[in-house]
Design a protein around this nucleic acid. Structure first.
Lengths: 258, 258
DNA sequence: ACAAAAGTGTTGTCTTTACACCCATGG
DNA sequence: CCATGGGTGTAAAGACAACACTTTTGT
Protein backbone atom coordinates (compact mmCIF):
# COMPACT_ATOMS: atom_id res chain seq x y z
CA UNK A 1 0.00 0.00 0.00
CA UNK A 2 1.49 3.36 -0.99
CA UNK A 3 1.48 6.48 1.18
CA UNK A 4 -1.58 8.07 -0.35
CA UNK A 5 -3.59 4.87 0.00
CA UNK A 6 -2.45 4.47 3.61
CA UNK A 7 -3.47 8.02 4.35
CA UNK A 8 -6.87 7.53 2.79
CA UNK A 9 -7.39 4.29 4.67
CA UNK A 10 -6.48 5.96 7.96
CA UNK A 11 -8.66 9.01 7.39
CA UNK A 12 -11.71 7.13 6.24
CA UNK A 13 -11.54 3.89 8.19
CA UNK A 14 -9.04 4.51 10.95
CA UNK A 15 -11.75 4.47 13.62
CA UNK A 16 -11.93 0.70 13.21
CA UNK A 17 -8.38 0.31 14.47
CA UNK A 18 -7.96 3.40 16.62
CA UNK A 19 -9.92 4.91 19.50
CA UNK A 20 -11.84 8.02 18.48
CA UNK A 21 -11.97 11.20 20.59
CA UNK A 22 -8.57 10.59 22.13
CA UNK A 23 -5.05 11.27 20.99
CA UNK A 24 -1.59 11.26 22.48
CA UNK A 25 0.88 14.11 22.14
CA UNK A 26 4.51 13.86 23.14
CA UNK A 27 6.75 16.66 24.28
CA UNK A 28 10.16 15.27 23.41
CA UNK A 29 12.97 17.07 25.17
CA UNK A 30 16.56 16.92 24.01
CA UNK A 31 19.62 18.78 25.15
CA UNK A 32 22.31 20.13 22.88
CA UNK A 33 24.88 22.89 23.04
CA UNK A 34 23.65 24.12 26.41
CA UNK A 35 20.13 24.49 25.12
CA UNK A 36 16.99 22.58 25.90
CA UNK A 37 15.31 21.49 22.68
CA UNK A 38 11.93 20.15 21.76
CA UNK A 39 11.01 18.12 18.69
CA UNK A 40 8.29 19.61 16.49
CA UNK A 41 6.50 18.64 13.29
CA UNK A 42 5.46 20.90 10.46
CA UNK A 43 2.04 19.95 9.13
CA UNK A 44 1.10 19.96 5.50
CA UNK A 45 -2.36 21.13 6.34
CA UNK A 46 -3.55 22.96 8.31
CA UNK A 47 -0.20 24.67 8.03
CA UNK A 48 1.69 25.04 11.25
CA UNK A 49 3.94 23.37 13.75
CA UNK A 50 2.83 20.98 16.43
CA UNK A 51 4.02 18.35 18.84
CA UNK A 52 4.40 14.84 17.52
CA UNK A 53 1.30 12.88 18.32
CA UNK A 54 -0.87 10.05 17.26
CA UNK A 55 -3.83 7.87 17.99
CA UNK A 56 -4.23 4.97 20.36
CA UNK A 57 -4.79 1.59 18.76
CA UNK A 58 -7.80 -0.22 20.09
CA UNK A 59 -5.75 -3.06 21.51
CA UNK A 60 -2.81 -1.06 22.74
CA UNK A 61 -1.97 0.36 26.15
CA UNK A 62 -1.42 4.09 26.48
CA UNK A 63 2.18 3.63 27.45
CA UNK A 64 2.82 1.43 24.43
CA UNK A 65 1.01 3.83 22.18
CA UNK A 66 3.09 6.77 23.33
CA UNK A 67 6.24 4.76 22.97
CA UNK A 68 5.28 3.74 19.43
CA UNK A 69 4.53 7.34 18.47
CA UNK A 70 7.84 8.40 19.87
CA UNK A 71 9.78 5.68 18.18
CA UNK A 72 8.18 6.50 14.83
CA UNK A 73 9.48 10.10 15.05
CA UNK A 74 12.86 9.52 16.64
CA UNK A 75 13.90 5.97 15.90
CA UNK A 76 14.42 5.41 19.63
CA UNK A 77 13.07 2.58 21.75
CA UNK A 78 12.94 2.23 25.50
CA UNK A 79 13.32 5.85 26.41
CA UNK A 80 12.11 7.75 29.42
CA UNK A 81 8.45 8.53 28.91
CA UNK A 82 6.12 10.04 31.43
CA UNK A 83 2.40 10.72 31.25
CA UNK A 84 1.84 14.13 32.81
CA UNK A 85 -1.63 15.48 31.99
CA UNK A 86 -4.72 14.94 29.91
CA UNK A 87 -5.84 17.98 28.00
CA UNK A 88 -9.49 18.63 27.29
CA UNK A 89 -10.24 22.05 28.67
CA UNK A 90 -8.96 24.53 26.09
CA UNK A 91 -11.46 25.91 23.58
CA UNK A 92 -9.86 23.80 20.83
CA UNK A 93 -10.63 20.71 22.82
CA UNK A 94 -14.27 21.37 23.60
CA UNK A 95 -15.55 21.40 20.06
CA UNK A 96 -15.27 19.70 16.73
CA UNK A 97 -12.39 20.50 14.45
CA UNK A 98 -13.55 22.97 11.84
CA UNK A 99 -10.86 23.12 9.21
CA UNK A 100 -12.40 20.82 6.65
CA UNK A 101 -11.30 23.20 3.92
CA UNK A 102 -7.80 23.47 5.32
CA UNK A 103 -7.53 19.71 4.95
CA UNK A 104 -8.08 19.74 1.18
CA UNK A 105 -4.37 19.40 0.43
CA UNK A 106 -4.53 15.74 1.33
CA UNK A 107 -6.78 14.97 -1.64
CA UNK A 108 -8.83 12.74 0.58
CA UNK A 109 -12.52 13.20 1.20
CA UNK A 110 -12.91 13.88 4.90
CA UNK A 111 -16.62 14.53 5.03
CA UNK A 112 -18.32 16.62 7.65
CA UNK A 113 -18.56 13.92 10.27
CA UNK A 114 -15.19 12.29 9.85
CA UNK A 115 -13.98 10.67 13.09
CA UNK A 116 -10.78 12.71 13.07
CA UNK A 117 -12.75 15.95 13.20
CA UNK A 118 -14.67 15.12 16.37
CA UNK A 119 -13.69 16.58 19.71
CA UNK A 120 -10.38 15.08 20.75
CA UNK A 121 -8.86 14.87 24.19
CA UNK A 122 -5.13 14.55 24.27
CA UNK A 123 -3.07 12.60 26.73
CA UNK A 124 0.23 14.39 27.20
CA UNK A 125 3.49 12.51 27.65
CA UNK A 126 6.92 13.92 27.86
CA UNK A 127 10.11 12.18 26.92
CA UNK A 128 13.77 12.81 27.61
CA UNK A 129 16.10 11.68 24.88
CA UNK A 130 19.73 11.87 23.90
CA UNK A 131 19.70 14.54 21.19
CA UNK A 132 22.61 13.03 19.34
CA UNK A 133 20.86 9.70 18.85
CA UNK A 134 17.69 11.08 17.30
CA UNK A 135 17.01 11.05 13.62
CA UNK A 136 13.83 13.13 13.27
CA UNK A 137 11.31 11.63 10.86
CA UNK A 138 8.18 13.32 9.50
CA UNK A 139 5.10 11.20 8.85
CA UNK A 140 2.30 11.09 6.33
CA UNK A 141 0.70 14.28 7.62
CA UNK A 142 3.85 16.30 8.04
CA UNK A 143 6.56 17.81 5.93
CA UNK A 144 9.35 18.30 8.37
CA UNK A 145 10.41 17.16 11.81
CA UNK A 146 13.11 19.04 13.64
CA UNK A 147 14.42 20.31 16.95
CA UNK A 148 13.54 23.76 18.22
CA UNK A 149 15.17 25.62 21.00
CA UNK A 150 12.68 25.66 23.85
CA UNK A 151 12.70 29.45 23.94
CA UNK A 152 12.21 29.87 20.20
CA UNK A 153 9.17 27.63 19.87
CA UNK A 154 6.77 29.29 17.44
CA UNK A 155 3.01 29.58 17.87
CA UNK A 156 1.80 26.00 17.63
CA UNK A 157 -1.45 24.45 16.52
CA UNK A 158 -4.21 23.85 19.06
CA UNK A 159 -3.12 24.01 22.69
CA UNK A 160 0.34 22.63 22.06
CA UNK A 161 2.17 25.64 23.46
CA UNK A 162 0.30 25.11 26.69
CA UNK A 163 1.30 21.45 26.61
CA UNK A 164 4.98 22.29 26.34
CA UNK A 165 4.66 24.77 29.22
CA UNK A 166 3.08 22.15 31.40
CA UNK A 167 5.55 19.47 30.37
CA UNK A 168 8.42 21.78 31.22
CA UNK A 169 6.89 22.76 34.54
CA UNK A 170 6.47 19.08 35.37
CA UNK A 171 10.03 18.30 34.36
CA UNK A 172 11.40 21.15 36.48
CA UNK A 173 9.36 20.06 39.42
CA UNK A 174 10.44 16.49 38.99
CA UNK A 175 14.13 17.39 39.06
CA UNK A 176 13.89 18.22 42.72
CA UNK A 177 12.79 14.79 43.81
CA UNK A 178 14.06 12.47 41.13
CA UNK A 179 17.38 12.30 39.37
CA UNK A 180 17.27 13.17 35.70
CA UNK A 181 19.96 13.24 33.09
CA UNK A 182 20.34 9.59 32.34
CA UNK A 183 18.18 9.95 29.28
CA UNK A 184 19.40 13.38 28.20
CA UNK A 185 23.14 12.90 28.37
CA UNK A 186 25.49 10.51 26.66
CA UNK A 187 26.62 7.54 28.71
CA UNK A 188 29.81 9.27 29.76
CA UNK A 189 29.71 12.96 30.56
CA UNK A 190 31.69 15.54 32.46
CA UNK A 191 30.70 17.48 35.57
CA UNK A 192 30.46 20.76 33.65
CA UNK A 193 28.11 19.04 31.21
CA UNK A 194 25.64 17.78 33.79
CA UNK A 195 26.00 21.02 35.68
CA UNK A 196 25.08 22.99 32.56
CA UNK A 197 22.16 20.68 31.91
CA UNK A 198 20.67 21.36 35.32
CA UNK A 199 21.30 25.08 35.05
CA UNK A 200 19.70 25.15 31.63
CA UNK A 201 16.52 23.34 32.61
CA UNK A 202 16.07 25.06 35.94
CA UNK A 203 17.11 28.46 34.57
CA UNK A 204 19.16 29.07 37.64
CA UNK A 205 22.85 29.23 38.43
CA UNK A 206 24.03 26.39 40.60
CA UNK A 207 27.24 26.48 42.58
CA UNK A 208 29.96 24.66 40.68
CA UNK A 209 31.32 22.97 43.78
CA UNK A 210 28.17 22.30 45.74
CA UNK A 211 26.14 20.95 42.85
CA UNK A 212 28.04 17.72 42.19
CA UNK A 213 28.56 17.01 45.89
CA UNK A 214 25.01 15.84 46.34
CA UNK A 215 24.91 13.62 43.29
CA UNK A 216 28.24 12.08 44.22
CA UNK A 217 27.37 11.62 47.89
CA UNK A 218 24.11 9.94 46.91
CA UNK A 219 26.13 7.64 44.69
CA UNK A 220 24.10 8.60 41.63
CA UNK A 221 27.11 9.52 39.54
CA UNK A 222 30.56 7.92 39.62
CA UNK A 223 33.88 9.35 38.55
CA UNK A 224 35.78 7.45 35.88
CA UNK A 225 39.51 7.36 35.35
CA UNK A 226 39.16 8.70 31.82
CA UNK A 227 39.06 12.32 30.81
CA UNK A 228 37.40 14.02 27.89
CA UNK A 229 39.56 15.94 25.48
CA UNK A 230 38.04 19.36 25.00
CA UNK A 231 40.76 21.03 22.95
CA UNK A 232 42.86 23.84 24.32
CA UNK A 233 41.87 23.42 27.95
CA UNK A 234 42.31 21.17 30.88
CA UNK A 235 40.72 17.82 30.17
CA UNK A 236 37.76 17.23 32.50
CA UNK A 237 37.09 13.85 34.07
CA UNK A 238 34.30 11.74 32.72
CA UNK A 239 31.51 10.47 34.96
CA UNK A 240 28.72 8.06 34.47
CA UNK A 241 25.44 7.33 36.22
CA UNK A 242 25.39 4.45 38.63
CA UNK A 243 22.27 2.81 37.32
CA UNK A 244 21.62 0.90 40.52
CA UNK A 245 21.54 3.97 42.75
CA UNK A 246 19.92 6.06 40.03
CA UNK A 247 16.98 3.69 39.69
CA UNK A 248 16.68 3.37 43.42
CA UNK A 249 16.47 7.16 43.69
CA UNK A 250 13.90 7.24 40.89
CA UNK A 251 11.79 4.74 42.72
CA UNK A 252 12.14 5.95 46.29
CA UNK A 253 12.32 9.62 45.47
CA UNK A 254 14.80 12.00 46.98
CA UNK A 255 14.98 15.60 47.90
CA UNK A 256 17.49 17.75 46.10
CA UNK A 257 18.05 21.21 47.40
CA UNK A 258 19.85 23.26 44.72
CA UNK B 1 -38.91 11.77 32.64
CA UNK B 2 -38.76 9.05 35.28
CA UNK B 3 -35.62 7.22 36.36
CA UNK B 4 -36.11 4.18 34.21
CA UNK B 5 -36.72 6.29 31.13
CA UNK B 6 -33.66 8.41 31.89
CA UNK B 7 -31.55 5.31 32.29
CA UNK B 8 -32.80 3.90 29.00
CA UNK B 9 -32.17 7.16 27.23
CA UNK B 10 -28.62 7.34 28.58
CA UNK B 11 -27.78 3.74 27.77
CA UNK B 12 -29.17 3.77 24.26
CA UNK B 13 -28.58 7.34 23.10
CA UNK B 14 -26.08 8.77 25.54
CA UNK B 15 -23.32 8.84 22.93
CA UNK B 16 -25.04 11.82 21.33
CA UNK B 17 -24.44 13.92 24.44
CA UNK B 18 -21.38 12.27 25.93
CA UNK B 19 -17.94 11.37 24.61
CA UNK B 20 -17.52 7.67 24.05
CA UNK B 21 -14.41 5.71 25.07
CA UNK B 22 -13.60 8.06 27.94
CA UNK B 23 -14.82 8.35 31.49
CA UNK B 24 -13.86 10.18 34.62
CA UNK B 25 -13.41 8.54 38.00
CA UNK B 26 -13.01 10.46 41.23
CA UNK B 27 -11.20 9.35 44.33
CA UNK B 28 -12.90 11.44 46.98
CA UNK B 29 -10.95 11.61 50.20
CA UNK B 30 -12.48 12.61 53.48
CA UNK B 31 -11.10 12.58 56.99
CA UNK B 32 -13.00 11.56 60.06
CA UNK B 33 -12.15 10.23 63.47
CA UNK B 34 -8.43 10.02 62.70
CA UNK B 35 -9.10 7.93 59.64
CA UNK B 36 -8.70 8.70 55.99
CA UNK B 37 -11.88 7.78 54.13
CA UNK B 38 -12.82 7.33 50.53
CA UNK B 39 -16.30 7.54 49.03
CA UNK B 40 -17.47 4.43 47.15
CA UNK B 41 -20.54 3.36 45.24
CA UNK B 42 -22.23 -0.02 45.24
CA UNK B 43 -23.41 -0.97 41.75
CA UNK B 44 -26.63 -2.73 41.02
CA UNK B 45 -25.00 -4.65 38.25
CA UNK B 46 -22.36 -5.87 37.76
CA UNK B 47 -22.41 -6.20 41.52
CA UNK B 48 -19.55 -4.61 43.33
CA UNK B 49 -18.09 -1.41 44.67
CA UNK B 50 -16.37 1.24 42.63
CA UNK B 51 -15.25 4.83 42.64
CA UNK B 52 -17.83 7.43 41.69
CA UNK B 53 -17.43 8.27 38.07
CA UNK B 54 -19.20 9.46 35.00
CA UNK B 55 -18.97 10.51 31.40
CA UNK B 56 -17.81 13.74 29.85
CA UNK B 57 -20.45 15.79 28.10
CA UNK B 58 -19.52 16.73 24.57
CA UNK B 59 -19.50 20.43 25.32
CA UNK B 60 -17.98 20.28 28.76
CA UNK B 61 -14.41 20.69 29.96
CA UNK B 62 -12.81 17.85 31.90
CA UNK B 63 -12.50 19.93 35.01
CA UNK B 64 -16.16 20.87 34.87
CA UNK B 65 -17.16 17.32 34.20
CA UNK B 66 -15.24 16.02 37.22
CA UNK B 67 -16.69 18.73 39.35
CA UNK B 68 -20.22 17.91 38.18
CA UNK B 69 -19.71 14.21 38.93
CA UNK B 70 -18.42 15.06 42.34
CA UNK B 71 -21.19 17.42 43.14
CA UNK B 72 -23.79 14.87 42.10
CA UNK B 73 -22.42 12.37 44.65
CA UNK B 74 -21.57 14.72 47.51
CA UNK B 75 -23.68 17.82 47.10
CA UNK B 76 -20.51 19.92 47.28
CA UNK B 77 -19.42 22.63 44.87
CA UNK B 78 -16.07 24.31 44.48
CA UNK B 79 -13.97 21.74 46.18
CA UNK B 80 -10.36 20.82 45.68
CA UNK B 81 -10.11 18.61 42.61
CA UNK B 82 -6.96 17.46 40.95
CA UNK B 83 -6.44 15.46 37.79
CA UNK B 84 -3.67 12.98 38.53
CA UNK B 85 -3.53 10.24 35.87
CA UNK B 86 -5.29 8.76 32.88
CA UNK B 87 -5.80 5.04 33.07
CA UNK B 88 -5.75 2.91 29.97
CA UNK B 89 -3.14 0.26 30.55
CA UNK B 90 -4.76 -2.38 32.75
CA UNK B 91 -6.29 -5.41 31.06
CA UNK B 92 -9.77 -4.10 31.84
CA UNK B 93 -9.00 -1.00 29.88
CA UNK B 94 -7.61 -2.58 26.75
CA UNK B 95 -10.71 -4.42 25.71
CA UNK B 96 -14.44 -4.17 25.42
CA UNK B 97 -16.61 -4.67 28.46
CA UNK B 98 -17.95 -8.21 28.41
CA UNK B 99 -20.67 -8.34 31.04
CA UNK B 100 -23.70 -7.91 28.82
CA UNK B 101 -25.47 -10.57 30.81
CA UNK B 102 -24.50 -9.02 34.10
CA UNK B 103 -26.23 -5.85 32.97
CA UNK B 104 -29.64 -7.49 32.57
CA UNK B 105 -30.89 -6.16 35.92
CA UNK B 106 -31.37 -2.77 34.33
CA UNK B 107 -34.13 -4.09 32.08
CA UNK B 108 -32.70 -2.08 29.24
CA UNK B 109 -31.51 -3.57 25.98
CA UNK B 110 -27.80 -2.88 25.77
CA UNK B 111 -27.01 -4.75 22.59
CA UNK B 112 -23.60 -6.13 21.70
CA UNK B 113 -22.15 -2.91 20.36
CA UNK B 114 -23.54 -0.47 22.88
CA UNK B 115 -21.29 2.57 23.26
CA UNK B 116 -20.93 1.99 27.01
CA UNK B 117 -19.38 -1.42 26.42
CA UNK B 118 -16.54 -0.20 24.23
CA UNK B 119 -13.03 0.18 25.59
CA UNK B 120 -13.01 3.07 28.03
CA UNK B 121 -10.09 5.13 29.23
CA UNK B 122 -10.57 6.78 32.55
CA UNK B 123 -9.26 10.13 33.63
CA UNK B 124 -8.56 10.01 37.34
CA UNK B 125 -9.21 12.96 39.61
CA UNK B 126 -8.92 13.09 43.32
CA UNK B 127 -10.79 15.38 45.63
CA UNK B 128 -10.37 16.45 49.22
CA UNK B 129 -13.56 17.22 51.03
CA UNK B 130 -14.80 18.01 54.48
CA UNK B 131 -16.33 14.71 55.58
CA UNK B 132 -18.93 16.35 57.75
CA UNK B 133 -20.41 18.36 54.88
CA UNK B 134 -20.94 15.43 52.55
CA UNK B 135 -24.27 13.78 52.03
CA UNK B 136 -23.46 10.70 49.91
CA UNK B 137 -25.92 10.15 47.08
CA UNK B 138 -26.21 7.04 44.89
CA UNK B 139 -27.21 7.46 41.24
CA UNK B 140 -29.27 5.55 38.70
CA UNK B 141 -26.74 2.77 38.42
CA UNK B 142 -25.97 2.37 42.07
CA UNK B 143 -27.67 1.27 45.24
CA UNK B 144 -25.55 2.81 47.90
CA UNK B 145 -22.94 5.47 48.34
CA UNK B 146 -20.87 5.58 51.49
CA UNK B 147 -17.49 6.24 53.07
CA UNK B 148 -14.95 3.49 53.51
CA UNK B 149 -11.89 3.56 55.62
CA UNK B 150 -8.94 3.73 53.24
CA UNK B 151 -7.46 0.56 54.70
CA UNK B 152 -10.71 -1.41 54.56
CA UNK B 153 -11.49 -0.75 50.91
CA UNK B 154 -12.84 -3.98 49.41
CA UNK B 155 -11.87 -5.42 46.03
CA UNK B 156 -13.30 -2.93 43.56
CA UNK B 157 -14.52 -3.23 40.01
CA UNK B 158 -12.07 -2.77 37.16
CA UNK B 159 -8.79 -1.09 38.08
CA UNK B 160 -10.29 1.09 40.77
CA UNK B 161 -8.10 -0.25 43.56
CA UNK B 162 -5.10 0.75 41.51
CA UNK B 163 -6.63 4.20 41.05
CA UNK B 164 -7.01 4.72 44.77
CA UNK B 165 -3.41 3.62 45.31
CA UNK B 166 -2.17 6.09 42.78
CA UNK B 167 -4.40 8.88 44.07
CA UNK B 168 -3.11 8.28 47.57
CA UNK B 169 0.50 8.19 46.40
CA UNK B 170 -0.05 11.47 44.59
CA UNK B 171 -1.68 13.04 47.60
CA UNK B 172 1.15 11.93 49.87
CA UNK B 173 3.72 13.25 47.49
CA UNK B 174 1.89 16.51 47.12
CA UNK B 175 1.84 17.11 50.86
CA UNK B 176 5.56 17.73 50.84
CA UNK B 177 5.44 20.66 48.48
CA UNK B 178 1.94 22.06 48.85
CA UNK B 179 -0.13 22.73 51.91
CA UNK B 180 -3.19 20.53 52.29
CA UNK B 181 -5.87 20.43 54.87
CA UNK B 182 -7.93 23.40 53.89
CA UNK B 183 -10.39 21.12 52.15
CA UNK B 184 -10.26 18.25 54.63
CA UNK B 185 -10.70 20.08 57.89
CA UNK B 186 -13.43 22.31 59.21
CA UNK B 187 -12.75 26.03 59.05
CA UNK B 188 -11.49 26.13 62.61
CA UNK B 189 -9.39 23.28 63.89
CA UNK B 190 -6.92 22.53 66.66
CA UNK B 191 -3.22 21.72 66.35
CA UNK B 192 -3.77 18.11 67.44
CA UNK B 193 -6.39 17.79 64.70
CA UNK B 194 -4.17 18.95 61.85
CA UNK B 195 -1.29 17.03 63.34
CA UNK B 196 -3.34 13.84 63.35
CA UNK B 197 -4.46 14.50 59.80
CA UNK B 198 -0.88 14.68 58.56
CA UNK B 199 0.17 11.65 60.55
CA UNK B 200 -2.77 9.70 59.23
CA UNK B 201 -2.17 10.45 55.58
CA UNK B 202 1.59 10.12 55.70
CA UNK B 203 1.46 7.08 58.01
CA UNK B 204 4.28 8.52 60.02
CA UNK B 205 4.66 10.01 63.45
CA UNK B 206 5.47 13.70 63.38
CA UNK B 207 6.95 15.54 66.30
CA UNK B 208 4.21 17.31 68.21
CA UNK B 209 6.27 20.46 68.69
CA UNK B 210 8.20 20.65 65.46
CA UNK B 211 5.29 19.94 63.16
CA UNK B 212 3.25 23.11 63.70
CA UNK B 213 6.34 25.34 63.79
CA UNK B 214 6.74 25.20 60.05
CA UNK B 215 3.12 25.89 59.22
CA UNK B 216 3.03 28.76 61.66
CA UNK B 217 6.34 30.24 60.56
CA UNK B 218 5.18 30.11 56.94
CA UNK B 219 2.06 31.93 58.01
CA UNK B 220 -0.16 29.20 56.63
CA UNK B 221 -2.10 28.71 59.85
CA UNK B 222 -3.01 31.35 62.41
CA UNK B 223 -3.84 30.94 66.06
CA UNK B 224 -7.22 32.23 67.18
CA UNK B 225 -8.13 33.46 70.62
CA UNK B 226 -10.87 30.84 70.94
CA UNK B 227 -10.44 27.36 72.28
CA UNK B 228 -12.32 24.20 71.52
CA UNK B 229 -14.09 22.40 74.30
CA UNK B 230 -13.06 18.76 74.24
CA UNK B 231 -14.67 17.55 77.39
CA UNK B 232 -12.65 16.46 80.39
CA UNK B 233 -9.31 17.87 79.23
CA UNK B 234 -7.50 21.07 78.68
CA UNK B 235 -9.22 23.06 75.95
CA UNK B 236 -6.95 23.35 72.90
CA UNK B 237 -6.66 26.58 70.92
CA UNK B 238 -8.38 26.82 67.58
CA UNK B 239 -6.45 27.73 64.45
CA UNK B 240 -7.48 28.57 60.95
CA UNK B 241 -5.78 28.67 57.60
CA UNK B 242 -4.62 32.04 56.37
CA UNK B 243 -6.08 31.77 52.91
CA UNK B 244 -3.76 34.39 51.44
CA UNK B 245 -0.56 32.62 52.46
CA UNK B 246 -2.10 29.21 51.86
CA UNK B 247 -2.97 30.02 48.26
CA UNK B 248 0.40 31.62 47.72
CA UNK B 249 2.07 28.44 48.95
CA UNK B 250 -0.19 26.34 46.72
CA UNK B 251 0.79 28.39 43.73
CA UNK B 252 4.50 28.87 44.37
CA UNK B 253 5.08 25.53 45.97
CA UNK B 254 7.06 25.01 49.12
CA UNK B 255 9.21 22.37 50.65
CA UNK B 256 8.07 20.73 53.83
CA UNK B 257 10.47 18.49 55.63
CA UNK B 258 8.54 16.43 58.18
C1' DA C 1 53.40 33.02 28.60
C1' DC C 2 48.67 33.53 28.11
C1' DA C 3 43.79 32.45 27.84
C1' DA C 4 40.23 29.40 28.99
C1' DA C 5 38.23 26.01 31.56
C1' DA C 6 38.60 22.38 35.43
C1' DG C 7 39.55 20.99 40.01
C1' DT C 8 39.22 21.31 44.89
C1' DG C 9 37.90 22.33 50.89
C1' DT C 10 36.56 25.17 54.61
C1' DT C 11 33.71 27.99 57.33
C1' DG C 12 29.53 30.29 58.87
C1' DT C 13 24.61 30.09 58.79
C1' DC C 14 20.43 28.03 58.70
C1' DT C 15 17.43 24.11 59.21
C1' DT C 16 16.15 20.11 61.37
C1' DT C 17 15.72 17.01 65.00
C1' DA C 18 15.39 15.39 69.58
C1' DC C 19 13.60 15.78 73.85
C1' DA C 20 10.58 16.55 79.10
C1' DC C 21 8.08 19.11 82.17
C1' DC C 22 4.09 21.84 83.56
C1' DC C 23 -0.87 23.18 82.81
C1' DA C 24 -5.94 22.87 82.27
C1' DT C 25 -10.22 20.49 82.60
C1' DG C 26 -14.06 17.35 84.04
C1' DG C 27 -15.29 13.71 86.63
C1' DC D 1 -7.04 14.69 93.27
C1' DC D 2 -6.40 12.08 89.31
C1' DA D 3 -6.36 10.89 84.50
C1' DT D 4 -5.97 12.61 80.09
C1' DG D 5 -4.50 15.42 76.68
C1' DG D 6 -2.52 20.28 75.51
C1' DG D 7 1.04 23.60 75.58
C1' DT D 8 5.72 25.17 75.24
C1' DG D 9 11.63 26.11 74.34
C1' DT D 10 16.37 24.88 73.87
C1' DA D 11 20.50 22.68 72.42
C1' DA D 12 23.08 19.56 69.36
C1' DA D 13 23.62 17.78 64.77
C1' DG D 14 23.32 18.04 60.13
C1' DA D 15 22.55 20.32 55.71
C1' DC D 16 23.30 24.13 52.87
C1' DA D 17 25.44 28.24 50.94
C1' DA D 18 29.16 31.05 50.07
C1' DC D 19 33.49 31.61 48.54
C1' DA D 20 39.05 31.89 45.63
C1' DC D 21 43.07 30.11 44.28
C1' DT D 22 45.69 26.61 41.67
C1' DT D 23 46.19 23.31 37.74
C1' DT D 24 45.99 21.84 33.03
C1' DT D 25 46.16 22.38 28.15
C1' DG D 26 46.82 24.23 23.39
C1' DT D 27 48.28 27.96 20.80
Amino acid sequence: MNSQKKLEQFIQHGYKDYLPNVSIDCTIFGYHDRKLKVLLLNWKTPEGWSLPGGRVKRNESLQLSASRILSERTGLEEIFLNQFHTFGDSVFRQQRFKHTKALSKFNVDFGEDNWLLDRTLSIGFYALVDYSLVNPQPDLFTEECRWWDIYDVPGLLFDHNEMIEKALATLRHQMYYEPIGYNLLPEKFTLPEIHDLYETILEKTLDRRNFPKKLISLGIIKKLKERKNIGPHRAPFLYRFDKRNYDKALKDGLSLSF
